[in-house]
Protein backbone atom coordinates (compact mmCIF):
# COMPACT_ATOMS: atom_id res chain seq x y z
CA UNK A 1 0.00 0.00 0.00
CA UNK A 2 1.36 3.48 -0.84
CA UNK A 3 2.41 5.76 2.02
CA UNK A 4 1.64 9.45 1.80
CA UNK A 5 3.52 12.23 3.60
CA UNK A 6 2.26 15.75 4.20
CA UNK A 7 4.38 18.78 5.11
CA UNK A 8 3.39 20.51 8.37
CA UNK A 9 0.87 23.25 7.72
CA UNK A 10 0.15 22.11 4.21
CA UNK A 11 -3.38 21.10 3.27
CA UNK A 12 -3.42 17.42 2.44
CA UNK A 13 -4.71 16.91 -1.09
CA UNK A 14 -4.28 13.24 -1.80
CA UNK A 15 -4.96 12.04 -5.33
CA UNK A 16 -8.52 10.90 -6.01
CA UNK A 17 -7.52 7.28 -6.51
CA UNK A 18 -5.83 7.22 -3.13
CA UNK A 19 -8.92 8.62 -1.42
CA UNK A 20 -11.06 5.91 -2.96
CA UNK A 21 -8.48 3.34 -1.94
CA UNK A 22 -8.38 4.74 1.60
CA UNK A 23 -12.16 4.66 1.81
CA UNK A 24 -12.26 1.10 0.48
CA UNK A 25 -9.47 0.18 2.89
CA UNK A 26 -11.39 1.60 5.83
CA UNK A 27 -14.54 -0.23 4.74
CA UNK A 28 -12.73 -3.51 4.21
CA UNK A 29 -10.78 -3.18 7.46
CA UNK A 30 -14.14 -3.20 9.23
CA UNK A 31 -15.52 -6.77 9.19
CA UNK A 32 -18.94 -5.34 8.46
CA UNK A 33 -17.66 -2.87 5.87
CA UNK A 34 -18.60 -4.95 2.84
CA UNK A 35 -22.15 -5.65 3.91
CA UNK A 36 -22.70 -2.05 5.04
CA UNK A 37 -21.33 -0.78 1.72
CA UNK A 38 -23.60 -3.11 -0.26
CA UNK A 39 -26.55 -2.10 1.90
CA UNK A 40 -25.92 1.62 1.35
CA UNK A 41 -25.50 1.05 -2.39
CA UNK A 42 -28.77 -0.89 -2.72
CA UNK A 43 -30.56 1.62 -0.50
CA UNK A 44 -29.29 4.56 -2.55
CA UNK A 45 -30.17 3.00 -5.91
CA UNK A 46 -33.63 2.08 -4.63
CA UNK A 47 -34.26 5.63 -3.37
CA UNK A 48 -33.29 7.07 -6.76
CA UNK A 49 -35.19 4.58 -8.91
CA UNK A 50 -38.44 4.23 -6.98
CA UNK A 51 -40.43 7.13 -5.53
CA UNK A 52 -42.24 4.64 -3.31
CA UNK A 53 -39.14 3.21 -1.63
CA UNK A 54 -38.26 5.89 0.90
CA UNK A 55 -41.74 6.32 2.38
CA UNK A 56 -42.54 5.69 6.03
CA UNK A 57 -45.10 3.06 5.02
CA UNK A 58 -42.54 1.14 2.97
CA UNK A 59 -39.85 1.44 5.65
CA UNK A 60 -42.29 -0.06 8.18
CA UNK A 61 -42.99 -2.91 5.74
CA UNK A 62 -39.26 -3.63 5.36
CA UNK A 63 -38.63 -3.41 9.10
CA UNK A 64 -41.51 -5.71 9.96
CA UNK A 65 -40.63 -8.31 7.32
CA UNK A 66 -37.01 -8.18 8.49
CA UNK A 67 -37.99 -8.93 12.08
CA UNK A 68 -39.22 -12.48 11.47
CA UNK A 69 -36.38 -13.58 9.21
CA UNK A 70 -33.90 -11.61 11.33
CA UNK A 71 -34.75 -13.50 14.52
CA UNK A 72 -34.17 -16.84 12.80
CA UNK A 73 -31.00 -15.45 11.23
CA UNK A 74 -29.51 -14.57 14.65
CA UNK A 75 -29.85 -18.17 15.83
CA UNK A 76 -28.57 -19.59 12.56
CA UNK A 77 -25.59 -17.20 12.57
CA UNK A 78 -24.53 -18.28 16.07
CA UNK A 79 -24.73 -21.91 14.96
CA UNK A 80 -22.71 -21.18 11.81
CA UNK A 81 -20.01 -19.39 13.82
CA UNK A 82 -19.93 -22.53 15.92
CA UNK A 83 -19.49 -24.59 12.74
CA UNK A 84 -22.99 -26.04 12.86
CA UNK A 85 -26.20 -25.61 10.86
CA UNK A 86 -29.86 -26.15 11.72
CA UNK A 87 -32.25 -26.76 8.81
CA UNK A 88 -35.18 -27.36 11.14
CA UNK A 89 -35.49 -23.75 12.36
CA UNK A 90 -38.39 -23.00 10.00
CA UNK A 91 -40.24 -26.14 11.07
CA UNK A 92 -39.70 -25.28 14.75
CA UNK A 93 -41.08 -21.78 14.12
CA UNK A 94 -44.14 -23.24 12.37
CA UNK A 95 -44.72 -25.83 15.08
CA UNK A 96 -44.41 -23.23 17.84
CA UNK A 97 -46.90 -21.03 16.03
CA UNK A 98 -49.56 -23.71 15.67
CA UNK A 99 -49.02 -25.09 19.18
CA UNK A 100 -49.44 -21.53 20.47
CA UNK A 101 -52.64 -21.19 18.47
CA UNK A 102 -53.96 -24.48 19.79
CA UNK A 103 -53.14 -23.64 23.40
CA UNK A 104 -54.85 -20.25 23.12
CA UNK A 105 -57.87 -21.26 21.02
CA UNK A 106 -58.55 -24.95 21.59
CA UNK A 107 -57.23 -25.40 25.15
CA UNK A 108 -58.24 -21.90 26.25
CA UNK A 109 -54.99 -21.15 28.11
CA UNK A 110 -54.03 -17.60 28.99
CA UNK A 111 -52.39 -16.15 25.82
CA UNK A 112 -49.24 -15.03 27.65
CA UNK A 113 -48.80 -18.39 29.32
CA UNK A 114 -49.32 -20.04 25.93
CA UNK A 115 -46.64 -17.87 24.38
CA UNK A 116 -44.21 -18.67 27.20
CA UNK A 117 -44.87 -22.40 26.78
CA UNK A 118 -44.27 -22.15 23.04
CA UNK A 119 -40.96 -20.40 23.56
CA UNK A 120 -39.97 -23.17 25.95
CA UNK A 121 -41.10 -25.74 23.42
CA UNK A 122 -39.00 -24.05 20.72
CA UNK A 123 -35.95 -24.05 22.98
CA UNK A 124 -36.71 -27.69 23.82
CA UNK A 125 -36.84 -28.67 20.14
CA UNK A 126 -33.52 -26.92 19.57
CA UNK A 127 -32.04 -28.59 22.64
CA UNK A 128 -33.23 -31.97 21.38
CA UNK A 129 -31.43 -31.30 18.08
CA UNK A 130 -28.28 -30.39 20.00
CA UNK A 131 -28.57 -33.41 22.26
CA UNK A 132 -28.91 -35.83 19.34
CA UNK A 133 -26.04 -34.19 17.46
CA UNK A 134 -23.63 -34.17 20.39
CA UNK A 135 -24.52 -37.47 22.01
CA UNK A 136 -24.97 -39.54 18.85
CA UNK A 137 -22.15 -37.64 17.12
CA UNK A 138 -24.29 -36.89 14.10
CA UNK A 139 -23.68 -34.24 11.51
CA UNK A 140 -25.95 -31.29 12.25
CA UNK A 141 -26.90 -30.84 8.57
CA UNK A 142 -28.14 -34.42 8.22
CA UNK A 143 -29.82 -34.60 11.62
CA UNK A 144 -31.70 -31.34 11.23
CA UNK A 145 -32.96 -32.30 7.76
CA UNK A 146 -34.60 -35.28 9.46
CA UNK A 147 -35.83 -33.25 12.41
CA UNK A 148 -37.35 -30.67 10.03
CA UNK A 149 -39.49 -33.52 8.73
CA UNK A 150 -40.42 -34.56 12.27
CA UNK A 151 -41.40 -31.05 13.42
CA UNK A 152 -43.13 -30.26 10.11
CA UNK A 153 -44.99 -33.57 10.28
CA UNK A 154 -46.07 -32.90 13.87
CA UNK A 155 -47.39 -29.55 12.65
CA UNK A 156 -49.48 -31.27 9.95
CA UNK A 157 -50.72 -33.99 12.32
CA UNK A 158 -51.81 -31.36 14.86
CA UNK A 159 -53.55 -29.08 12.37
CA UNK A 160 -54.50 -31.48 9.57
CA UNK A 161 -53.23 -28.68 7.38
CA UNK A 162 -55.95 -26.27 8.48
CA UNK A 163 -55.13 -22.88 10.00
CA UNK A 164 -56.19 -22.24 13.60
CA UNK A 165 -58.36 -19.15 13.71
CA UNK A 166 -59.71 -17.07 16.58
CA UNK A 167 -56.35 -16.15 18.11
CA UNK A 168 -57.04 -13.69 21.00
CA UNK A 169 -56.75 -10.01 20.14
CA UNK A 170 -54.62 -9.36 23.25
CA UNK A 171 -51.51 -10.56 21.42
CA UNK A 172 -52.17 -8.90 18.07
CA UNK A 173 -50.10 -5.81 18.97
CA UNK A 174 -47.04 -8.08 19.14
CA UNK A 175 -47.32 -8.58 15.38
CA UNK A 176 -49.19 -5.52 14.19
CA UNK A 177 -48.43 -2.79 16.73
CA UNK A 178 -46.16 0.25 16.35
CA UNK A 179 -44.12 1.84 19.14
CA UNK A 180 -42.73 5.31 18.30
CA UNK A 181 -43.33 4.44 14.65
CA UNK A 182 -41.38 1.17 14.80
CA UNK A 183 -43.13 -2.18 14.32
CA UNK A 184 -43.13 -4.20 17.55
CA UNK A 185 -41.54 -7.31 15.91
CA UNK A 186 -38.67 -5.09 14.75
CA UNK A 187 -38.11 -3.83 18.30
CA UNK A 188 -38.12 -7.43 19.54
CA UNK A 189 -35.46 -8.18 16.92
CA UNK A 190 -33.33 -5.22 18.07
CA UNK A 191 -33.53 -6.35 21.71
CA UNK A 192 -32.66 -9.96 20.87
CA UNK A 193 -29.82 -8.91 18.57
CA UNK A 194 -28.39 -6.59 21.22
CA UNK A 195 -28.39 -9.35 23.83
CA UNK A 196 -26.87 -11.98 21.54
CA UNK A 197 -24.29 -9.54 20.13
CA UNK A 198 -23.28 -8.58 23.67
CA UNK A 199 -22.89 -12.25 24.64
CA UNK A 200 -20.87 -12.98 21.51
CA UNK A 201 -18.53 -10.01 21.82
CA UNK A 202 -18.22 -9.32 25.53
CA UNK A 203 -18.56 -12.60 27.40
CA UNK A 204 -16.45 -15.76 27.72
CA UNK A 205 -19.29 -17.78 26.20
CA UNK A 206 -19.00 -15.72 23.02
CA UNK A 207 -15.26 -16.26 22.87
CA UNK A 208 -15.77 -19.98 23.43
CA UNK A 209 -18.21 -20.11 20.50
CA UNK A 210 -15.63 -18.52 18.19
CA UNK A 211 -12.95 -20.84 19.55
CA UNK A 212 -15.07 -23.94 18.97
CA UNK A 213 -15.96 -22.74 15.47
CA UNK A 214 -12.29 -22.20 14.63
CA UNK A 215 -11.00 -25.46 16.06
CA UNK A 216 -13.22 -27.69 18.20
CA UNK A 217 -10.38 -30.07 19.14
CA UNK A 218 -8.22 -27.23 20.40
CA UNK A 219 -11.19 -25.74 22.27
CA UNK A 220 -11.82 -29.08 23.97
CA UNK A 221 -8.15 -29.33 24.97
CA UNK A 222 -8.42 -25.87 26.51
CA UNK A 223 -11.16 -27.19 28.79
CA UNK A 224 -14.10 -25.55 27.05
CA UNK A 225 -17.33 -27.53 27.50
CA UNK A 226 -17.83 -27.88 23.79
CA UNK A 227 -20.93 -30.08 23.82
CA UNK A 228 -22.74 -27.95 26.41
CA UNK A 229 -22.14 -24.82 24.35
CA UNK A 230 -23.23 -26.55 21.15
CA UNK A 231 -26.46 -27.71 22.81
CA UNK A 232 -27.04 -24.22 24.19
CA UNK A 233 -26.61 -22.70 20.74
CA UNK A 234 -29.13 -25.11 19.24
CA UNK A 235 -31.55 -24.28 22.07
CA UNK A 236 -31.08 -20.57 21.34
CA UNK A 237 -31.81 -21.12 17.64
CA UNK A 238 -34.97 -23.05 18.56
CA UNK A 239 -36.04 -20.34 21.01
CA UNK A 240 -35.58 -17.53 18.46
CA UNK A 241 -37.39 -19.52 15.76
CA UNK A 242 -40.31 -20.11 18.13
CA UNK A 243 -40.33 -16.40 18.95
CA UNK A 244 -40.49 -15.58 15.23
CA UNK A 245 -43.32 -18.13 14.81
CA UNK A 246 -45.35 -16.65 17.64
CA UNK A 247 -44.85 -13.10 16.41
CA UNK A 248 -46.04 -14.26 12.98
CA UNK A 249 -49.18 -15.74 14.56
CA UNK A 250 -49.78 -12.38 16.22
CA UNK A 251 -49.20 -10.64 12.90
CA UNK A 252 -51.55 -12.87 10.88
CA UNK A 253 -54.19 -13.35 13.57
CA UNK A 254 -54.23 -17.05 12.68
CA UNK A 255 -51.85 -19.92 13.30
CA UNK A 256 -50.93 -21.02 9.79
CA UNK A 257 -49.34 -24.45 9.33
CA UNK A 258 -47.20 -22.91 6.58
CA UNK A 259 -45.43 -20.49 8.94
CA UNK A 260 -41.68 -20.97 8.71
CA UNK A 261 -41.70 -22.65 5.31
CA UNK A 262 -39.50 -19.86 3.92
CA UNK A 263 -37.20 -19.52 6.93
CA UNK A 264 -34.68 -22.19 6.00
CA UNK A 265 -32.44 -20.87 3.25
CA UNK A 266 -32.83 -17.10 3.62
CA UNK A 267 -31.22 -16.93 7.10
CA UNK A 268 -28.25 -18.97 5.86
CA UNK A 269 -27.91 -16.70 2.83
CA UNK A 270 -28.23 -13.63 5.06
CA UNK A 271 -25.52 -14.90 7.38
CA UNK A 272 -23.15 -15.61 4.48
CA UNK A 273 -23.80 -12.19 2.95
CA UNK A 274 -23.16 -10.70 6.38
CA UNK A 275 -19.72 -12.27 6.57
CA UNK A 276 -20.38 -15.42 8.59
CA UNK A 277 -18.10 -18.20 7.37
CA UNK A 278 -19.83 -21.48 6.59
CA UNK A 279 -16.75 -23.23 8.02
CA UNK A 280 -17.20 -21.59 11.44
CA UNK A 281 -15.22 -19.24 13.64
CA UNK A 282 -15.86 -16.05 11.66
CA UNK A 283 -18.59 -13.42 11.44
CA UNK A 284 -21.11 -11.92 13.80
CA UNK A 285 -24.89 -11.97 14.36
CA UNK A 286 -24.96 -8.22 13.62
CA UNK A 287 -23.42 -8.84 10.19
CA UNK A 288 -25.87 -11.66 9.58
CA UNK A 289 -28.85 -9.42 10.34
CA UNK A 290 -27.40 -6.76 8.05
CA UNK A 291 -27.30 -9.49 5.41
CA UNK A 292 -30.98 -10.07 6.11
CA UNK A 293 -31.58 -6.33 5.62
CA UNK A 294 -30.02 -6.62 2.16
CA UNK A 295 -32.23 -9.57 1.28
CA UNK A 296 -35.28 -7.71 2.65
CA UNK A 297 -34.51 -4.62 0.57
CA UNK A 298 -34.01 -6.73 -2.55
CA UNK A 299 -37.35 -8.45 -1.99
CA UNK A 300 -38.95 -5.04 -1.55
CA UNK A 301 -37.52 -3.40 -4.65
CA UNK A 302 -38.35 -6.43 -6.77
CA UNK A 303 -42.02 -5.70 -6.12
CA UNK A 304 -41.68 -1.91 -6.27
CA UNK A 305 -39.85 -2.08 -9.60
CA UNK A 306 -42.43 -4.46 -11.01
CA UNK A 307 -40.01 -7.24 -11.90
CA UNK A 308 -41.72 -10.31 -13.39
CA UNK A 309 -42.17 -13.12 -10.85
CA UNK A 310 -40.31 -15.44 -13.21
CA UNK A 311 -37.26 -13.18 -13.10
CA UNK A 312 -37.36 -12.51 -9.37
CA UNK A 313 -35.09 -15.38 -8.32
CA UNK A 314 -32.53 -14.47 -10.98
CA UNK A 315 -32.56 -10.81 -9.99
CA UNK A 316 -32.40 -11.38 -6.23
CA UNK A 317 -29.77 -14.13 -6.62
CA UNK A 318 -27.77 -11.94 -8.99
CA UNK A 319 -27.77 -8.98 -6.60
CA UNK A 320 -26.66 -11.22 -3.73
CA UNK A 321 -23.81 -12.64 -5.83
CA UNK A 322 -22.86 -9.10 -6.89
CA UNK A 323 -22.84 -7.89 -3.28
CA UNK A 324 -20.60 -10.75 -2.12
CA UNK A 325 -18.34 -10.39 -5.18
CA UNK A 326 -17.85 -6.66 -4.63
CA UNK A 327 -16.74 -7.33 -1.07
CA UNK A 328 -14.37 -10.07 -2.21
CA UNK A 329 -12.98 -7.95 -5.07
CA UNK A 330 -12.36 -5.00 -2.75
CA UNK A 331 -10.38 -7.24 -0.39
CA UNK A 332 -8.41 -8.72 -3.29
CA UNK A 333 -7.66 -5.23 -4.63
CA UNK A 334 -6.30 -4.07 -1.29
CA UNK A 335 -4.31 -7.23 -0.68
CA UNK A 336 -2.70 -6.83 -4.10
CA UNK A 337 -1.70 -3.24 -3.26
CA UNK A 338 -0.36 -4.27 0.12
CA UNK A 339 1.84 -6.91 -1.46
Amino acid sequence: MSLETTLPGATPTPPKASSIRALVARMVANPLGGVIGAMILIFGISCVLSPHFLTSFNMIIIARALAFIGLVTIGQAVLMILGELDLSVGAIGGLAGVVGGMLMVQVGLNPWLSLALCLLMGAGCGLLNGLLITQLRLHSLVLTIGMAGVYGGANLVATRGVAITGVPHEISFLGRGLVFGFPVPFLVLVVCLSIVAFVMMRTPVGRYIYAIGSNPQAARMLGIRVNAIRMGAFALAGFLSALAGILMVARLGTAQPSIGDTWVLSPIAAAVIGGVATTGGLGSPVGAVLGAVIIGMIEDIIVLFGISPYWQSIVSGGIVVLAISLDSLARHYLNRDAS
Binding site: H52, N58, M248, R251, S258, I259, D261, T262, L304, P309
Partner: peptide
Protein backbone atom coordinates in the same frame (compact mmCIF):
# COMPACT_ATOMS: atom_id res chain seq x y z
CA UNK B 1 -51.84 -5.10 -15.10
CA UNK B 2 -48.86 -5.73 -12.82
CA UNK B 3 -48.58 -9.42 -12.04
CA UNK B 4 -46.84 -10.11 -8.69
CA UNK B 5 -46.79 -13.77 -7.74
CA UNK B 6 -45.27 -15.08 -4.49
CA UNK B 7 -42.55 -17.70 -5.02
CA UNK B 8 -44.15 -19.93 -2.35
CA UNK B 9 -47.79 -20.40 -1.33
CA UNK B 10 -47.25 -18.87 2.10
CA UNK B 11 -49.55 -16.27 3.67
CA UNK B 12 -46.77 -14.18 5.17
CA UNK B 13 -44.93 -14.05 1.82
CA UNK B 14 -48.16 -13.05 0.10
CA UNK B 15 -48.83 -10.39 2.73
CA UNK B 16 -45.36 -8.95 2.15
CA UNK B 17 -46.10 -8.63 -1.56
CA UNK B 18 -49.53 -7.10 -0.95
CA UNK B 19 -48.02 -4.54 1.46
CA UNK B 20 -45.31 -3.62 -1.04
CA UNK B 21 -47.96 -3.24 -3.72
CA UNK B 22 -49.95 -0.95 -1.39
CA UNK B 23 -46.81 1.19 -1.00
CA UNK B 24 -46.97 1.94 -4.76
CA UNK B 25 -50.58 3.25 -4.47
Amino acid sequence: IEYRAPQTADVSSQNDIIERAIATH
